[in-house]
C-alpha cells in the first residue's frame, strides 16, 4: 500500500485535507456552541448555514462586495436564529431532548425545501473571501484562502472563549445550560439565553457557510449536508464541549479522510466515509469524551 511513497503527493493530500477540514471546522464550532448553550444538537444547523449562504449570494448578485455581504448576512442570521428559537423552539423548551431534536429535523426539511423553492435548483457560485492564487512551496500548492479559512475558525474559537469566560452574559449562558432550574432561581432568564445561543450559533453557521461555499467553486442547496456530518464527527472527535477540540478534530478528520481515500486502495473513495467514522468510533471507545473534551465523572 505505502511502498513507493511520493512525498510531494502525500504532502499535497495533507494540505488538501487541511483545506477541506477548515471548511468543517467553523460549523463544528457552531455545533459545540449550541450544545453548550442549550444542551441539544441542532440537525438543522447545516441547513441554516446553507440558507444564510444563499442570502449572501443574493446580496452579491445585487451589487454587494463579498465582505459587506458577509457582515449583513451574519447580523441577519443572528436575528433569524433568535427569531427561530422564539417561534419554534420556545414552545417545546421544556420537552425532552429527543422532542427538540425531532423539531430540528423538521426544521432541516423546511429550510432545505424553502431554499430550493426560493432559489432555483441550479448550482451557484460566489466570489472568494481570500485570494485563491496558488502558492508553491517545495512542490506543494496551497492558497491564502486555505489559510484564511482555518484562521477564521480559530478566531471564532478565541472570541467564543473570551465571551464565555469573561462576559456576564457568557457566564449566564453556561450556567443556564448546565442547570436551568437553579439558574432560574438565581435570576437568569434561561429562555432568553437559549435564544441568544441560537442566534450566535446561526450567525457562526453563516460564517461557516460563507467560508465553505466560495472555495468549493460551486454549491447547491445540499452542499452543507456532508459538511454537517463531518463537522459533527469532528466536534465529537475533538470533544463536543470543546471549541478548540472541534477545530482540531475537524482538521484531523479532513487529513485522515484524504490519506485513507488515496493510499489505502481497498477503502478508496466509496468506503472512506464509513471507515473514517468507524475509526472515530474506536477513538471514542478508548476516550469517550473525545480528544480535548472534559470527561463527565460517572460513578457506577
Amino acid at each position: 500500500m505505502l511502498l513507493a511513497v511520493d512525498w510531494a503527493g502525500v504532502a499535497q493530500q495533507v494540505v488538501a485535507g487541511l483545506s477541506s477540514g477548515g471548511t468543517y471546522a467553523t460549523l463544528a464550532v457552531a455545533l459545540v456552541l449550541i450544545y453548550r448553550a442549550t444542551g441539544v444538537v441542532n440537525f438543522a444547523q447545516g441547513e441554516l448555514a446553507m440558507f444564510s449562504t444563499f442570502v449572501a449570494w443574493t446580496l452579491t448578485r445585487h451589487g454587494f462586495a463579498y465582505w459587506p455581504a458577509f457582515v449583513v448576512t451574519v447580523v441577519a442570521s443572528f436575528a433569524g436564529g433568535v427569531a427561530l428559537e422564539r417561534v419554534v423552539i420556545r414552545p417545546v423548551e421544556r420537552a425532552s431532548v429527543l422532542t427538540i431534536a425531532i423539531v430540528t429535523i423538521g426544521l432541516f426539511f423546511v429550510v432545505n425545501g424553502a431554499a430550493f423553492w426560493i432559489w432555483s435548483p441550479e448550482v451557484k457560485s460566489m466570489p472568494n473571501a481570500f485570494s485563491t492564487r496558488p502558492i508553491h512551496v517545495a512542490g506543494v500548492a496551497f492558497s491564502i484562502s486555505d489559510l484564511g479559512i482555518i484562521g477564521v475558525s480559530l478566531l471564532a474559537v478565541l472570541l467564543l472563549w473570551l465571551f464565555f469566560r469573561f462576559t456576564k452574559l457568557g457566564l449566564a449562558m453556561r450556567a443556564a445550560a448546565l442547570n436551568p432550574d437553579s439558574s432560574r432561581l438565581s435570576g437568569i432568564r434561561v429562555s432568553w439565553t437559549i435564544a441568544l445561543g441560537w442566534g450566535l450559533a446561526t450567525a457562526l453557521g453563516a460564517v461557516a457557510g460563507l467560508m465553505a461555499a466560495p472555495p468549493l467553486g460551486s454549491f447547491d442547496q445540499n452542499f452543507m449536508q456532508p459538511i454537517l456530518l463531518y463537522a459533527f464527527a469532528g466536534a465529537v472527535l475533538g470533544g463536543i464541549d470543546s471549541a478548540l477540540g472541534a477545530v482540531v478534530g475537524s482538521l484531523a478528520l479532513g487529513v485522515f479522510l484524504n490519506l485513507l481515500g488515496t493510499y489505502v486502495s481497498w477503502v478508496g473513495t466509496d468506503l472512506r466515509q464509513g471507515v473514517a467514522l468507524a475509526v472515530i468510533l474506536g477513538v471514542l471507545l478508548v476516550k469517550p469524551a473525545g480528544l480535548l473534551g472534559t470527561a463527565t465523572v460517572r460513578s457506577v
Binding site: 423538521g106 423546511v110 425545501g113 424553502a114 423553492w117 435548483p121
Partner: peptide, 22 residues
C-alpha cells in the same frame, strides 16, 4: 409541485405536531 415545496410542508408538519403535541 415546485421543487422543494414538498419538503417544506413535510417539515412544517413535523414541527407543528411536536409543538402542539409534545
Amino acid at each position: 409541485n415546485a421543487p422543494g415545496a414538498p419538503s417544506v410542508f413535510f417539515g412544517a408538519a413535523i414541527v407543528l405536531v411536536m409543538i402542539l403535541l409534545p
